[in-house]
Design a protein around this nucleic acid. Structure first.
Lengths: 209, 209
DNA sequence: GAAGCAAGTCAACATATGTTTACATTGCGT
DNA sequence: ACGCAATGTAAACATATGTTGACTTGCTTC
């Protein structure tokens, strides 16, 4: 239907693969290719043949290892959730804005921007929606907790709401910088350009105590 | 491929249409149905038959009036741009956060939230990308101008960048509240719940002078 | 009322796409 | 070395989908 720009030159020019016929490795190749495609083009616009070609792998293996395109997508969401939790996990409270700026600024295909963009992609499947909601929920709670929020605390709802707004801002920035939009000057802003405004933003929403 | 929930009961139960065989009206019906579908499900996941059914109109008319699915999508983007410019046009500088809060809080299919969500949808077509970039660019310049930015002014780049971050925050909030995500408590927050944090956010990014 | 034209309908087509099935090949344990 | 399960391949299928062309229907004008 539309053009089909490959997302990366399959596997980089390694003349002899160390281990072929390794199920774990091809599973990972598929996961990586799928995450890039899904994040960049969305679920519906990505075909299983695109993913398989990027991974340098036969199409049928998607159904073998992930049951279906939906299954592969859910696996991508889980992986993005894990990576998000890992990167945002141990951030000291006073470094939250800097951490967000640094991770948002990274436009690489493995960076946080890419994970956030992926997390917005919808497949229309209820299972995937549930996973996404869980991941985003946890992320906002982590962010709120870094600024003193505790579950069930009176008035905590307000803090959680503000944390979700900060998360929304990060997501919005990631989206407006992403390849399909590239709003300038936001898109070519560096980490140093972003950290100041982001600190103002986060500190205004979640005042450090 | 996926389920197919209609977006609204075609045309509400009007027993006798006032004017049938009215090209302008059916064009508008198609535009409205398409904007809802595209905003909710994205470009690739929306089929022309879905749109035609929602509009209560024959499929072939999409190609007659808009040349192609792409053409219809571009028309939707232009319409969203017009509506965005109209709603954000005459906002006094000191009411910007309130205006954003009010418009973001409106989750109706014609509200600003829906327009912003639509503007994020990508079709992979270069023409559509250009339209989107233009609309978002103008919106951020309007926002910056409301806080004293003037084109070409020294140091104005910083203000524009901050305005785009505020726009990004609004977009992020709209997305996290949208039907496919519905992050709580953000999703059920009312205009009053949003206005406080949004004022803090906008004022921190674009200090009123 | 007939001609002419815009508006709308219907059916078909060409292709893209997710999935399955049957078959080939590799490597490991014995 | 041999068999066997695991891994990978190729082709086909059923269907969804954008688009097109021929045809019909209603409105307007003379």
């Amino acid at each position: 239907m539309t053009a089909e720009p490959p997302v990366s030159p399959a596997t980089a020019g390694e003349p002899a693969r160390p281990r072929r016929r390794d199920a774990t490795e091809t599973r990972q190749l598929l996961l990586d290719a799928a995450r890039q495609r899904f994040a960049r083009d969305g679920y519906a616009a990505t075909t299983v043949r695109d993913i398989a070609d990027d991974a340098g792998v036969n199409v049928a293996l998607i159904n073998r290892y992930f049951s279906s395109k939906e299954g592969l997508f859910e696996a991508c969401l889980r992986a993005a959730g894990d990576e998000l939790r890992r990167t945002t996990g141990q951030t000291p409270a006073d470094r939250v804005p800097e951490a967000i700026a640094r991770h948002i600024a990274d436009l690489g295909t493995a960076g946080l921007s890419s994970q956030l963009t992926l997390l917005l992609r919808s497949s229309g499947d209820a299972g995937a929606d549930e996973i996404r909601r869980g991941v985003l929920s946890r992320a906002s709670e982590q962010l709120a907790a870094a600024r003193g929020w505790r579950p069930g605390e009176p008035g905590g709802e307000q803090i959680l709401l503000r944390a979700q707004m900060a998360l929304a801002a990060g997501i919005g920035v990631a989206v407006l910088r992403s390849s399909s939009i590239q709003l300038e000057p936001l898109s070519s802003a560096t980490e140093e350009d972003l950290v100041g405004p982001l600190r103002d933003l986060v500190d205004a929403l979640l005042p450090p105590r």
